[in-house]
């Protein structure tokens, strides 16, 4: 491969521009599905693109009382985190752009770093809503992170590798892991909802209480970048779960269908469940989520030892 290849992978495909565009599509699909579930019409196809385009064109207001550099840098950092993470994830049936040993841990770490960025963005400002939102974001991070991590590590344990690509290879050549590890799959998909702060785990940005949570003070470019980062995180999360649990790398069409089906499940949960309070969220994760994933882990270890 020529020197062009890494740059092409970074900026155009599979990461970069292509990923951002596809994330618009997934955001639109998510909103449209929820609207249809609620008997509404929902947004037009180009709505997410128009939203982001408008946000990026707008003035960014830096409020009083924030650390200016941090305020400006956090959105970029969060955006960079998810874009870097996307390099290690195989999208739409293509091999991952890059792989090194243990890149699963790197991807997970980068995705968490994005959430930490959100938390820092909240605590950076003196807005009370933002501070409460940031506290909730970070509390929720500690709640779902353990079980979600375990749920994604279990395929790694089975495949005996910490590299996403080799886990994907393993998944393509064996039975779908949703069959062999159903509990892990459930924990993973609920963990993804928690990670993306979607209902019912949207206490960190519950608009009825704390307006827009940690991002209350963000406007214009910063807000737009955070929004893109979250959309991309949705795509990465869906792709990871699809690769691990739904039969690895297959042809692009089938892969997209699987991702859309997963999105349907997420949208269904978003529209049928009431928002949980933050204490209920934490309780649920540590009481049910952690124990379930530990049980799954135990089963895997027992099966493997035998």
């Amino acid at each position: 491969m020529t020197a062009l290849h890494p740059l092409f992978a970074l900026f155009i495909f599979p990461a970069g521009l292509f990923l951002i565009l596809i994330s618009f599509f997934f955001e639109w699909l998510d909103r449209k599905l929820i609207a249809r579930f609620q008997n509404r019409q929902g947004p037009r196809f180009l709505q997410p693109f128009a939203d982001i385009f408008k946000l990026l064109a707008k003035e960014e207001i830096v409020p009083i009382g924030v650390h200016r550099t941090l305020f400006m840098a956090l959105p970029i950092f969060a955006f960079a985190c998810v874009m870097t993470a996307s390099l290690y994830v195989p999208f739409f049936g293509f091999k991952a752009a890059w792989h090194i040993r243990g890149d699963l841990i790197i991807a997970m770490y980068l995705l968490s770093a994005m959430t930490v960025c959100l938390g820092m963005a909240g605590t950076n400002s003196i807005n009370r809503f933002a501070v409460v939102g940031a506290t909730r974001t970070l509390t929720q991070l500690f709640a779902y992170e353990g079980p979600f991590m375990l749920a994604l590590l279990m395929p790694a344990l089975v495949a005996q590798s910490w590299t996403i690509s080799s886990i994907a290879d393993y998944a393509s050549n064996h039975t779908w892991m949703i069959v062999t590890q159903p509990i892990g799959f459930i924990v993973a998909i609920i963990g993804l909802i928690g990670k993306l702060e979607l209902p019912p785990f949207d206490a960190p940005e519950a608009e009825q209480e704390i307006v827009s949570g940690a991002l209350s003070e963000y406007s214009g470019r910063g807000f737009g970048l955070f929004k893109i980062a979250k959309n991309v995180e949705l795509v990465i999360g869906l792709a990871l779960i699809t690769v691990f649990y739904l039969g690895g790398i297959v042809n692009p069409l089938l892969f997209s269908i699987k991702m859309v089906v997963l999105l349907c499940v997420i949208a269904l949960m978003q529209s049928t469940l009431t928002r949980l309070r933050i204490d209920q969220t934490v309780g649920l994760w540590w009481q049910a989520g952690a124990i379930l994933s530990l049980a799954q882990l135990l089963i895997i270890i027992l099966v493997r030892v035998r």
């Binding site: 609620q38 008997n39 529209s271 469940l273």
Partner: peptide
């Protein structure tokens, strides 16, 4: 009231 609790499906259907 359902919307205040983040239960938007109920909100949309009851208003419909």
């Amino acid at each position: 009231a359902a919307h205040e609790g983040g239960f938007d499906a109920m909100f949309m259907y009851s208003w419909r």
